[in-house]
Write a protein that binds this DNA or RNA. Structure first.
Length: 792
DNA sequence: CCGATACGCATTTTT
DNA sequence: TGCGTATCGG
């Protein structure tokens, strides 16, 4: 029974066996963190803890799922009764049970970031007009320009993470001062309005799930005690990423037993922009008196070179828990640095290297990952990989659940569950088009604001709220109401996927999509319905007979693309940001764009804590590698980015020379870059936006010249090649393919006749295909304008 | 209600 | 650069 302990090394075993009080497990990269967590939970169950007395919190559904599977393998079906899941899913579960205490009802729905953004947008407008009634339009515009939704949203999110509710926010001097500084003094009122609107509509956003849990426990001692006594042992994964609210809730739940084990790695704390507080892990042993500290220092993932290089980098951080990560694997190759002339050559470097290792060293494509700082940097890499026929997939595009058609269907689900959900209402009131225009919606919105009632309540009895619609509109609204009520009637009667079917048929979505010939969208909706079916089947198998749409939506609202099962996506090179690579491992790692000043370097380097986080980010990138790491930079970047001396180059310099294979030129470039950067630091005026391309100087030079209208022949040409096919803006998931046009396809072009597609490169407006026409030779087509159809 | 056009804006994002 | 959105005219 105890044989699982033999599979652990000494420090892992010690961490698993200590269960008498709080403990902190510092788990270096690749040190078997998940193994410790799963074995520990299995161990707890073996020594007498019942599964429902154990709470295990993770940040991703994926982590929770994987851990559950592994524990099931150890202890069998009992694992099902563990309280294991993401912070958000576990807390939403508690909130649904205890919603009454907070003035919510248990069927509350969850706003994702775009829902709350859209709500905030309308609130900003409203509050602004209200406060500045007397101003002229020009003056209004002057003040309004400071109210950027993204900024407002992040401020409110920060406040919530810090447990600051609107009433406190409005009285807080520091908040007020900061807002006045940024010319957004109305923020407090906007926050309050947003807060009230969410309550009125019975919805919570992601931050609310944490904040309301905290409030629930704070204001209801008996409820807090109930859970604190139930969760006799609490485990937290990735503790370095917890924010204020999460930490506070953990403290609330552990006051009685103090049986808590948190696992994490301070060296991998890279989410401060989302509110994560590295202090939570650094100060754990102070916050939990008598906490034991365990260090997992043996790295099983990487070569000694990788580990050594990573160590030599991270030792420059002051704020960290000292540790000595080591590897007993082979020495391995040096980290290779490639300096190339341009961004495209950087792509070439990656492609050639991959092709070489694939063809001659028998590496599989899935052994490779290309990491970059920001998603926008993937484009050129994608282009060159496509040109070289190297299959790849990009993480971080538009998530499945963010697609319009999916959100539309889910909005119907949300309305059926919680008809007061305002954003869902706005989304579907006239989708598919049923002749209810903006004017009608505006009237409903005004009444909703005036009476503090949800849109649905207004819709149900418009006359009592002073709305007199004409006959036609009244009939249309009535029909919409009947539609929603018809779906509601099925809620507790039918299976989830059956309700899904009802929705797309009754609402007319199905008809609408097939009429529009939106094949991709139809496919996505089908996929969603299949997901519903799978959900039901899984729950039935677990013996949950009464699973309904409410349960489905509760789960789906907290799902992301990363949770989608990867279907037949083998043998592909992976492209992703460093952030999304955390927790993953690859044999060969490329880190590209090292010179990139993708975000203003002054912003990155302005504070010691910011520098340390960037250093940790680079640390994360390097430690993804099992075997080797290739780092590249381009001296010229033709389309995007500036030639600032990058923040990363400085980190590269910090890595001990003995781990790096330097090209000779590199030294010089770094030195020049460094002096250029220092110079720009002293003269403040040289700070440039990172989004200005190099050709900006040319544009500036000709800026004086009045704009010339396009010549007649050019206009004519443009008209003739009117856009016929839209290339999707998001990156295609499969390669080599853009907007459904693949290399190898046969097309018929209006002018050139039949031809074979050799390659397709670019995204968005910039997609170009190289086509070899049977009668006209090889041509480059700008897909945006090309008139053609695919015939094979 | 659509399409064409113009304009502004822009890290990282586990939920 | 290239995307989302606002705006206008048909």
């Amino acid at each position: 029974m105890n044989d699982y302990l033999d599979e652990l090394n000494e420090s892992q075993r010690a961490a698993v066996l200590y269960n008498d009080g709080p403990s902190l497990v510092i788990a270096g990269a690749g040190s078997g963190k998940t193994r410790v967590l799963t074995y520990k939970i299995a161990h707890l169950m073996n020594i007498g803890y019942d599964p429902w007395n154990i709470l295990a919190l993770t940040f991703t559904n994926k982590a929770a799922r994987e851990m559950k599977e592994r524990i099931t393998r150890q202890v069998g079906e009992r694992a099902r009764y563990l309280w294991m899941g993401t912070f958000h899913s576990i807390f939403s579960r508690i909130l649904r049970i205890e919603s009454q205490a907070l003035g919510f009802s248990s069927n509350f729905t969850i706003y994702d970031a775009s829902d709350s953004k859209s709500l905030l947008k309308s609130i900003i407008k409203e509050k602004f007009d209200e406060a500045y009634k007397s101003l002229t339009d020009e003056e209004k515009d002057k003040y309004l320009k400071y109210y950027k939704v993204n900024l407002i949203q992040s401020r409110i999110s920060n406040a919530k993470n810090q447990l600051i509710v609107p009433s406190v926010y409005m009285l807080d001097d520091e908040c007020k001062r900061a807002d006045r500084n940024d010319n957004i003094s109305l923020l407090g009122e906007i926050y309050e309005c947003y807060w009230e609107r969410c309550r009125q509509d019975n919805v919570m956003d992601f931050d609310d799930l944490l904040l309301y849990t905290y409030i629930l426990f704070r204001d209801n001692p008996e409820i807090r005690l109930k859970y604190a006594l139930q969760f006799r042992y609490i485990l937290v994964d990735e503790y370095q990423d917890t924010n204020c609210a999460q930490n506070a809730i953990i403290l609330q739940l552990t006051t009685e037993y103090q049986r808590i084990c948190v696992v994490g790695d301070d060296a991998q704390s890279i989410y401060s922009f989302r509110g994560a507080k590295i202090e939570n892990i650094l100060n754990f042993t102070k916050n939990f008196v008598g906490a034991k500290l365990y260090r997992l220092e043996q790295n099983y993932r990487s070569t000694q070179t990788i580990v050594g290089a990573a160590n030599s980098l991270i030792k420059n951080n002051v704020h960290q828990i000292p540790k000595n990560i080591f590897s007993k694997n082979s020495q391995g190759d040096l980290i290779e640095i490639a300096g190339v002339y341009s961004d495209y050559l950087e792509g070439d470097f990656v492609a050639r290297k991959i092709e070489y290792l694939h063809s001659y060293k028998k590496c599989s494509y899935e052994d490779f990952v290309v990491l970059y700082r920001a998603n926008a940097q993937s484009r050129i890499i994608e282009e060159t990989l496509r040109k070289n026929f190297i299959p790849y997939r990009v993480y971080g595009g538009l998530s499945f659940y963010q697609h319009k058609e999916i959100k539309d269907v889910l909005a119907y689900c949300r309305m059926a569950i919680n008809p007061d959900d305002g954003e869902a209402f706005k989304r579907i009131l006239n989708y598919p088009a049923r002749g209810i225009g903006n004017v009608t919606l505006e009237k409903l919105l005004d009444a909703s604001n005036a009476f503090g009632k949800s849109l649905w309540s207004i819709l149900k009895e418009p006359i009592s709220y002073g709305l007199n619609f004409n006959k036609g509109t009244t009939a249309k609204l009535q029909k919409f109401r009947e539609l929603i009520e018809a779906i509601m009637a099925e809620l507790n009667v039918k299976r989830v996927d059956e309700i899904g079917k009802t929705i797309i048929e009754l609402s007319g979505i199905k008809k609408h999509l097939s009429l529009e010939k939106e094949e991709d969208k139809v496919k996505n909706v089908d996929e969603l319905l299949k997901g519903m079916q799978d959900f039901c089947r899984n729950r039935y198998e677990e013996g949950d007979e009464r699973v309904g749409l409410v349960d489905y939506m509760a789960e789906v609202a907290l799902l992301t693309d990363q949770d989608m099962s990867d279907k037949e996506d083998f043998e592909k090179v992976t492209l992703m940001t460093i952030h999304s690579a955390k927790g993953l491992e690859f044999k060969k790692v490329f880190i590209v764009g090292l010179e990139e000043g993708i975000f203003p370097s002054e912003k990155c380097l302005h504070s010691e804590t910011a520098i340390e986080e960037e250093r940790r980010l680079f640390y994360v990138a390097i430690t993804r590698a099992e075997e080797c790491c290739y780092i590249s930079y381009a001296e010229n970047r033709s389309k995007y980015g500036t030639m600032e001396f990058s923040s990363y180059s400085r980190f590269l310099e910090e890595i001990d020379e003995c781990y790096i294979d330097w090209p000779k030129k590199r030294r010089r470039m770094l030195d020049e870059g460094a002096s250029r950067f220092r110079a720009s630091q002293t003269s403040s005026s040289t700070a440039r936006s990172p989004f200005v391309t190099r050709s900006q100087s040319l544009i500036d030079r000709y800026a004086e010249r009045p704009a010339q209208p396009a010549s007649a022949p050019v206009q004519q040409e443009a008209r003739r090649f009117k856009k016929v096919s839209t290339i999707p803006s998001s990156r295609p998931s499969a390669s080599p393919s853009v907007g459904g046009l693949q290399a190898g396809a046969v097309i018929e072009h209006e002018r050139f006749g039949v031809g074979d597609v050799i390659s397709v490169v670019g995204t968005g407006d910039n997609c170009k295909a190289t086509v070899r026409f049977r009668n006209a030779g090889e041509k480059q087509l700008l897909l945006k304008f090309a008139r053609f159809k695919v015939i094979g």
